[in-house]
Design a protein around this nucleic acid. Structure first.
Lengths: 264, 264
DNA sequence: GAACGACGTTCGTAAATACGAACAACGAGG
DNA sequence: CCTCGTTGTTCGTATTTACGAACGTCGTTC
């Protein structure tokens, strides 16, 4: 048989190599964002595997618009424009803005930290955080944090309420509980979550911390995110009490989005 | 309220037409951010004065990396990646992260809204806002808002402590007070601010609201932003009392940045 | 103080993009 | 049902960008 005996190592996933310059500019932004420090032209050239001369003009185009800042040592860091665009994104996400007052209420009533998160791929992305009042030290904002969806209460609340085919989660990835879940068991849990209208994370991401979350729906009936609260399991109130408050908050937010009563 | 609210195309500042594609991609992001709604390819073509065919590939490059999302009707809105990059920016700004605990303290002690802002061009850009606890309704975050520097307390606190040649403010632009300032009078005010170490805005941006702000300095002695508080003038505490608290907070933050005692 | 090394910048040409026009896919209206 | 108007997509060529190498600059070392 003359057929090919080996597949070439070709398949660079989804990189159509089209529009090099724009993609490179974006990857440069992401690289600098991930590095947590200012990077030099040479460093970026290595990290992006691009010639310095090409990057030179791209980076200056980014800097000219305020997406990068160049310090005295010719190092590149993120510019204020990135923050302005990101801020615009947050202001344009309707579910987030509807959820936010509910987060404030929850954090006051329950004395807990409240979150709003959406699904992005197989991960949840936290878009808002409201700390409990007067709890003392407030950590740096977790807005922008990503976590595997199936390891968090907000993630499971969302996964349970979207089409099963929409996302494939990697069940091998385990939290602090240490045991990988079978697909069967996980689907059973999603079914339970769908019925009781809330999800619980018993320290799968951070042990000793319990998270309780409920899904939010928009006018077309689709799940558009989840509201959740986090608190120390030990000495906290009864789980059902917390869940009721969270479910009510999510339902109020969903109603404001025009969700049909059948889902919210 | 975030970012610019103005409609229409973003003005290109006499750019040397270099690197069209990257610049166009960025302007497209800014245009969508400013529009507060999803835009079609044709709309963007008009707003950017670019042919649809050129934009087509650029927008898809942006979408492929998550900077744009394309809905079912082929309209473009900002994608989650913009928010992640902007979030990274905030986490990388050292003065902001040092100032934030001070904002929390101020908002608790004074029962006022506390801000941190930096200078960008002739405008101040608000990077953090901490509301007074239990004041009831909390407005949408003002993070990302811009205001003319010379019309705000935080702006004047910064302007008074940087090289006079660094920025040229447009004194013709007046606040609610209604009277344009002479350059001489404004410079006198900056001198006074520099001496007393704090600036006051008596309702120049929003009447009935008083803002008091103090500059922050970093290790090289340069002013890197300002901390300010806002409150209703009527019934509020004495101005000097508030100013002392704000100045102390800014001084603590500056010390943490390693600022020399001579400035902080 | 001179030489070296590292980095950023400039420049000419190969290669990829941008543009306009033609094509395709809808929806609206007649 | 057909037509028209609009919008998104594709395609071939002119124009722009990208690349590698040479150059200028700065900091360090010997």
């Amino acid at each position: 048989m003359a057929a090919r005996t080996s597949r070439g190592p070709i398949s660079l996933p989804a990189q159509p190599a089209t529009h090099n310059s724009v993609t490179r500019a974006l990857v440069a932004l992401e690289t600098i964002a991930a590095s947590n420090r200012a990077l030099s032209l040479s460093e970026l050239g290595e990290l992006l595997d691009a010639p310095k001369s090409s990057l030179h003009s791209i980076l200056h185009a980014l800097a000219a618009r305020g997406y990068l800042e160049i310090d005295a040592a010719r190092n590149y860091r993120l510019g204020v424009r990135t923050m302005e665009i990101g801020s615009s994104y947050l202001s344009q996400i309707t579910p987030l803005n509807v959820a936010h007052p509910e987060l404030v209420k929850l954090s006051h009533e329950l004395h807990m930290t409240a979150h709003f998160a959406v699904l992005d791929g197989a991960e949840v992305l936290y878009l808002a955080k409201e700390d409990a009042p007067a709890i003392g030290i407030r950590l740096a904002s977790s807005v922008g944090t990503r976590l595997p969806a199936h390891l968090t209460a907000v993630g499971k609340a969302i996964l349970a309420n979207i089409a099963a085919t929409a996302v494939t989660v990697n069940l091998q990835q385990v939290g602090s509980s240490g045991k990988p879940l079978s697909a069967q068991a996980f689907n059973r849990e999603l079914g339970r979550i769908r019925m009781q209208r809330y999800a619980v994370d018993e320290g799968e991401t951070i042990s000793a911390v319990r998270c309780v979350a409920a899904p939010m729906f928009e006018s077309n009936g689709r799940c558009c995110g989840a509201i959740g609260v986090s608190y120390l399991r030990e000495g906290g109130p009864a789980r059902k009490l917390v869940a009721d408050a969270v479910v009510r908050a999510a339902a109020r937010a969903s109603q404001q989005l025009g969700a049909p009563a059948s889902v919210a």
